[in-house]
Design a protein around this nucleic acid. Structure first.
Length: 419
RNA sequence: GUGGCCAUAGUUCAGUUGGUUAGAAUGCCAGGUUGUGGCCCUGGAGGUCGUGGGUUCAAGUCCCACUGGCCACCCCA
């Protein structure tokens, strides 16, 4: 019996983990600069938290959650996204009492039981941020600028930023009604998927990928035509803030988010380098969620981004390969009698902070040299009885093949600065 | 959840109308004399041909189911 990882889950192998670390540290660095602090919430929560926040009728809640009952007969769910937990924690810990605006970020695994595909896994990783406490469009702009800055620092520049306003509890119902009745008139000619969507989420019909649907709905009114005064001026405020920040964007009146809690701003960043799963990041405003989860009504904006998709783009533009660097020094033993000294010296240098490697397989000198070469080590020192007696050895530069005489006792000095 | 394509060494792939001990490249290991990597040469290890059934004298090759992968839909990050 050979065990295999669960469908839709992936090992991050030693050859790939440096890329992950690189992305994660860039992400954290940018968050820090924007003054967002990390919040770490549990990977599982009460099921009701997610059905309440994301929306009981959404696909995520309806058919994609990993839900199980624990021994106490309580229904628990592996988090399918990050915002619900953050807001839960915000309310539970009264974070809003200490300061009017709370800026937090998270980074970690999420779980959704979907059919795996390129850029879509059952355990996948997201980072995201939430700014809780401000109703102002500048906050939305900061969240969008933050999202973009992260990609910029990773040298990802080819993407499309689309924004929309999905209205609020005052204007959206009115629009929904108009849209639904318009859609009913042409329902017969729409694709089966879109017919289903009329009842479930009519706004979604507008961004159907079906070309016939597209042309049939081309003339239908958009949410942006129905925004109330408050939503309209908020949307205007966002657009002018983005312009002031020199962030290029496209208004897409058909953009909808899949989670029910969004109000006003919705945005999405798609990559031009990916296949059908091309959404790199998405987010928006959710002014009603805090109240929905039992807290005081508090305006908030946030975004979430997929790390696997980001890495796919990086691989496309930079190629695969390790980025973690290599040891500065390899100590090779020329004979069996010197192995113990090499082992001890390796540990001592490591204790001093030197990145150093030596053989653990009892290999021949030639094999040790090959090992050092393959690992990309910059310098090798061969140590045998001769060197131990004279206290000197020749240090070989593996880049150009040149050797130079060094004192064995000087190794620490020579390499301490290397790390 | 729906549809299409696919599944042979660690990896990328060959494998002819079913027919002897299933191959290549690459990677890995060891050697090419006495203590020095890359290039080259030689040798070696490594496969229950995804799993389980079936057809057949005979199945990597044909059929079915399952599992897994990829792509699209759906959904979304």
């Amino acid at each position: 019996m050979v065990f295999k990882s669960i469908r839709g889950t992936k090992d991050i192998l030693p050859g790939e983990s440096d890329r992950w670390l690189e992305v994660e540290s860039t992400v954290r660095r940018v968050f820090r600069r924007f003054n967002y602090k990390e919040i770490r919430t549990p990977l599982f929560e009460q099921t009701a938290l997610f059905s309440r926040s994301i929306g009981a009728l959404t696909d995520i809640v309806g058919k994609e959650m990993y839900t199980f009952t624990d021994r106490g007969e309580e229904s628990l769910t592996l988090r399918p996204e990050g915002t619900a937990s953050v807001i839960r924690s915000y309310i539970q810990n009264n974070l809003g009492e200490a300061q009017p605006l709370v800026k937090v970020y998270y980074l970690g695994p999420m779980f959704r039981q979907e059919r795996p595909q390129a850029g879509r896994l059952r355990q996948f990783h997201q980072f995201g941020a939430e700014a809780i406490g401000s109703p102002r469009p500048e906050t939305d702009a900061e969240i969008i600028a933050l999202t973009i800055q992260i990609y910029r620092e990773l040298s990802i520049t080819r993407y499309d930023l689309k924004i929309n306003s999905v209205g609020c509890e005052r204007c959206r119902p009115r629009y929904r009604e108009v849209l639904t009745s318009e859609l009913r008139k042409i329902a017969g000619s729409l694709s089966p998927d879109s017919q289903r969507r009329i009842a479930e989420n009519p706004m979604r019909v507008l961004d159907s990928k079906d070309e016939k649907d597209q042309s049939l709905t081309a003339q239908l009114p958009l949410i942006t035509d129905y925004l109330c005064e408050e939503c309209r001026s908020h949307f205007e405020g966002l657009k002018s803030a983005l312009a002031a920040l020199r962030i290029p964007f496209r208004i897409d009146g058909r953009l909808v988010r899949g989670l029910d809690y969004y109000t006003k701003t919705a945005f999405e960043l798609t990559s031009t380098e990916l296949g059908s799963q091309d959404a790199l990041a998405g987010g928006g405003r959710y002014d009603l969620l805090t109240a929905e989860l039992g807290g005081k009504q508090t305006p908030a904006v946030g975004f979430a981004a997929g790390i696997e998709r980001l890495l796919m783009v990086l691989e496309k533009i930079k190629g695969a390969g390790d980025t973690g660097g290599q040891p500065a020094l390899y100590l090779a033993a020329a004979d069996a009698e010197s192995r113990e000294w090499v082992l001890a010296q390796t540990m001592e240098l490591r204790g001093e902070g030197v990145w150093v490697e030596s053989d653990l397989l009892g290999r021949s000198l030639k094999a040790q040299m090959r090992d050092a070469d393959r690992q990309g080590v910059r310098a090798v020192l061969v140590v045998g009885q001769k060197e131990l007696q004279s206290g000197k050895g020749s240090l070989k530069n593996m880049m150009n093949g040149e050797s130079k005489e060094v004192q064995l006792s000087a190794l620490q000095q020579l390499f301490a600065k290397a790390l």
